[in-house]
Write a protein that binds this DNA or RNA. Structure first.
Lengths: 341, 341
DNA sequence: TTGAAAGCGCTAACAG
DNA sequence: CTGTTAGCGCTTTCAA
């Protein structure tokens, strides 16, 4: 028993009130595809106003084909980075007249696929996805004829938007080197993760190319605050404690900050930190974090355009990242141009 | 020109492949309303498998009435608290077989109403909303016969879920008093905001009931990191600096932490802090924040149940909050039972 | 410029 | 137990 829900006003009601046919109502609502005499148009408009008619998107989708809905699947919306991404995607989608369906895969491939399945049943027009199972997801979507764009890990032939993880890691590490630190460790992401690997390679490369004597210490950790905390504790425990640590994500850096605090190590004086993501939290942290900034808005805009543009050739974007220099790297202290160690 | 999207497989295709009628296919897909012979059922199942049939939710919604979709409108998903809420809502909705449509009102009433309009066009079954214009929103939804539950500000006769803002503020302030602080200031929320006012009243009440000599210092600020930063700077600037500050939200507390750091004031040694929300960020902050914890999961579960339960009498929940004691309040130091100042 | 009517894919009477 | 059929509300030919 529905509250006070008056029976739905349909196009037929409007047509009746305006003394025209349903077709004409449709023409004025959609501005086509047939022209309508100005007088008639006014009568229809008045009838719409008077009846409180609201077009039914469901019926419209059934006949028209498009639901004007986009899906967004992220591992966890409570993760600051994904939350910012979601905001940007929703914003871009809205500007394009689309609404977004949101779901969390919880980092689980099975869940992600199940979510995709329900999205497909709802006939979304396209999906933006940070995938745990890109190949399978792509096959499903391809079979359904649904547009998609992968963020991060992606199958080779599908549209994807990524950032220069390698370059960003190199820049961050170089910056640390420039401060004169020699023992620069890294808290990396999960093993066998495309994104995490690229960041690790960048860090490694920077160190090697500058002639570091030995390998820097490295630990694999999930991209979480906790991962950063645990990884930080591990790295800080050794007898030759690192002078600087590059964390693979802002959340890890925040955990690292806590680990340092717990160990009574002052940042950046006794330990410098650089990180990756550029989420808002990196600016709020104390000390503020020097971080590699991902172009979130640009990613979202590109993704939505790719899903809504009439003509959208496959996209393989690798966006540039920028290093945002703040306090955690020790920039309050003099900085030297990086030279060979 | 769609990619490789094979033409959609419909119920008719399945019926043909199984040698039955569409009705029977519908019966087995939905497990009713008519029984189907086991043999037939197997043939249909096989046909579904073989054709790769996927029921069309749009058509189903058109005839059935329900879209199995819930809307969620928050001011800003990038705000940690709303992000956690969104995760909980999505989780609960998924468990109930629903999908969620997400949108950000950006704290603007006009935007919120426009968003609601598009949700209504898409015929969502119900909406969870943190509203900037509760009365108008409620009227719109009532007229459309759409279920809703307001979080925070709500019209008197609509279902709502809130927390004991007053009680939480009292508890936090009392705790600060227990540490022996006498000058306890507050960074409040926006003026004329229900939630913000209740928190302010709680702080005020705790102070008054304990016989504080004079009014504590108070500043209005938005519920943002920046608001907390600015408010903190204001409060810390006076000649008789407060010994403790109660911030109306975690985000503000995080900004306050930065303000204190900028002023070279050590927390909790020179300034104690307590806050409200209990978002994950409060635990990650350095020092970790003593905060009033909102029962996010419970709120989300209740909200979804309210929107999906067959029988859902109006709900006016005011949930209990708990004080989570961490480092920022100075609990490393001895604590005394609150007594009159 | 307008209207009649054929579906879009599915569910649920209503007959067998 | 199974099949036929009438819509759900809307868009879009096709005729007028």
């Amino acid at each position: 028993m529905r509250g006070g829900g008056v029976a739905r006003v349909t196009q037929a009601d409007v047509a009746r009130a305006a003394g025209t046919s349903m077709a004409v109502v449709s023409y004025v609502v959609n501005g086509g595809p047939r022209p309508v005499a100005e007088g008639t148009r006014q009568r229809v408009l008045a009838a719409i106003e008077q009846t409180g008619y609201r077009p039914d998107g469901v019926a419209r989708a059934l006949v028209g084909g498009s639901t004007m809905t986009l899906g967004l699947i992220v591992p966890d919306i409570a993760n600051e980075f994904f939350a910012e991404l979601a905001r940007a995607v929703e914003h871009a989608a809205r500007a394009a007249g689309r609404t977004v369906l949101l779901a969390n895969s919880e980092g689980d491939a099975q869940t992600e696929l199940a979510l995709l399945e329900t999205f497909l049943e709802r006939r979304i027009d396209g999906v933006v996805i940070i995938s745990q199972a890109p190949i399978t997801a792509a096959r499903m979507l391809e079979r359904a004829g649904t547009r998609r764009v992968f963020l991060g890990a992606a199958p080779p032939d599908d549209s994807s938007i990524g950032v220069d993880n390698f370059g960003g890691a190199v820049a961050a590490t170089m910056h640390l080197v420039g401060h004169g630190y020699e023992r620069i460790a890294m808290i990396g992401g999960p093993d066998l993760d495309e994104v995490a690997d690229a960041r690790r390679d960048g860090w490694q490369h920077a160190l090697t190319s500058l002639g570091a004597a030995e390998e820097g210490a490295f630990v694999h950790q999930p991209f979480t605050v906790d991962g950063g905390y645990v990884g930080g504790l591990q790295l800080l425990a050794g007898d030759t404690r690192p002078q600087a640590i590059f964390a693979a994500s802002d959340r890890q850096a925040i955990g690292l900050l806590r680990a340092a605090a717990d160990e009574g190590i002052s940042v950046p004086d006794e330990l410098a930190i650089a990180t990756f993501d550029g989420s808002a939290a990196s600016a709020y942290a104390v000390p503020s974090l020097t971080t590699v900034q991902q172009p979130i808005t640009q990613m979202a805009d590109l993704a939505v355009r790719q899903l809504t543009a009439h003509d959208a050739p496959p996209l393989h974007a690798v966006l540039e990242v920028g290093l945002v220099i703040r306090r955690s790297c020790g920039c309050s202290r003099p900085w030297l141009e990086p030279r060979r160690l």
